[in-house]
Design a protein around this nucleic acid. Sequence first.
DNA 1: TTCCATTCGGGTAATTGGGGGA
DNA 2: GATGTCCCAATTACCCGAATGG
Lengths: 66, 66
Amino acid sequence: MTTSTGGRLLTPGEVASLFRVDPKTVTRWATAGRIGSIRTPGGHRRFREAEVNQLLAELTTDAERP
Amino acid sequence: MTTSTGGRLLTPGEVASLFRVDPKTVTRWATAGRIGSIRTPGGHRRFREAEVNQLLAELTTDAERP
DNA sequence: TTCCATTCGGGTAATTGGGGGA
DNA sequence: GATGTCCCAATTACCCGAATGG
């Protein structure tokens, strides 16, 4: 069962601060499937810290993907 | 067998940590009927771990692709 | 019994979601 | 093609005092 990573979750505002973008942009990333997200029963999104950090690392590494 | 779902019970604070929300928010979910809850004789709420985990799984959008 | 963190209630700010357009 | 900003409705977060749990 690898469904629950058990890692900490971040709010859209926290992720937006890390990337220095608007929270709406983070929402678009989630909608486009670029980043996994968990929804509360009320519809608000939460993001996995580990996944966010990995995405941040890829950006700062200037990694290129085909 | 048993009609009692003998799963572990979680406190509002524990459920709140799993979803990264305020314990009061979990209380609203219970009031709105979005999640089943048990009340102690004193009025405090308890939640079934199995139901919480299933809810987490349903609301999780995994985008992990190695 | 006392002690202390947690969870009741309510009420009021702050975020978030979704659509649309610059 | 991807972001930021404006609108409004819904959801969530923080405030308090009082009660419960272990």
